[in-house]
Write a protein that binds this DNA or RNA. Sequence first.
DNA 1: TCTATTTAAGAGTTTATTGTCTTAAATATA
DNA 2: TATATTTAAGACAATAAACTCTTAAATAGA
Lengths: 150, 150
Amino acid sequence: MLLSKSCVYGLRASIYLASKSDEEFNSIKEMSDKLEISFHFLTKILQQLTAESLMESYKGPKGGIRLTKKGREATLLDMVIAIDGPELFTQCALGLPGCGSATPCPLHESWIETRASIQGMLERTTLSELAREGKQNKFRLMADGSFNWD
Amino acid sequence: MLLSKSCVYGLRASIYLASKSDEEFNSIKEMSDKLEISFHFLTKILQQLTAESLMESYKGPKGGIRLTKKGREATLLDMVIAIDGPELFTQCALGLPGCGSATPCPLHESWIETRASIQGMLERTTLSELAREGKQNKFRLMADGSFNWD
DNA sequence: TCTATTTAAGAGTTTATTGTCTTAAATATA
DNA sequence: TATATTTAAGACAATAAACTCTTAAATAGA
């Protein structure tokens, strides 16, 4: 798989939160239920994103989590790098440390292009814009397509 | 990572074998030494490729492994699918089973293109042709670049 | 101040991937 | 036929990823 499961969970949660009000803290439990992701597992992933100031959380009753301004203006690429790390966008396709334009591996040239395509897909829009598109097109965010964008 | 370690080992071994004579069986031990891949681990990966008739092996002294005709005419894509399976080229980027053009996830449209780019990179040339390019350009096949194409 | 609620943190479990080691089967050659 | 060599197969171990469970810390509201 291109992205780890943790990463995919983080992206789906990011898009979920982007579809919500900027000010309100959203219950993680409610989100994990709606997205059908293990609650405790999801909290750990979200903590990686709050560590990067892409999200902020609040404890106690009425507590929850929301995107920061930085997070709303960030792209999925920022989320991916925060969770899976930058390796996908820096490493050789064959994992050869010395690979570069000087002494490339057989895939090097194509991989530069393909990698740019992956990167482009992830940084095409900000999360705010993605949420707008999502509401408009009612994009799928769950296996069974039951997510409600309103 | 885009490809599993097993898969990357399989690709490097495939390119290695493509650079060798069509008839001779090549020692797996020698190949694992030259590519710096664990011998026993590599044999298991190669067995997946022989199961698909992309390679054929021979036991005993003078034994070893070589690409079949099918293998030489195959592309890296065939090797990837034999080892990592076809999921990368069939699944949704967010792993959502129901995702499709009818009710796409937010990445669906871009992912179709990006996936085609990955696939294109892997099926651009046959292994025979790749070996020819490799000899010509002395492509990197090892971390330290010490592979000898002759 | 006390209690209930919610996220944070950390330990522990399960599963998949990666890697090692031993034995079996095939076969060339002495 | 006996031996050495090489791949096949399977058990086992280490590591990483994915997931669960328990306790701690913060805080709203009674």
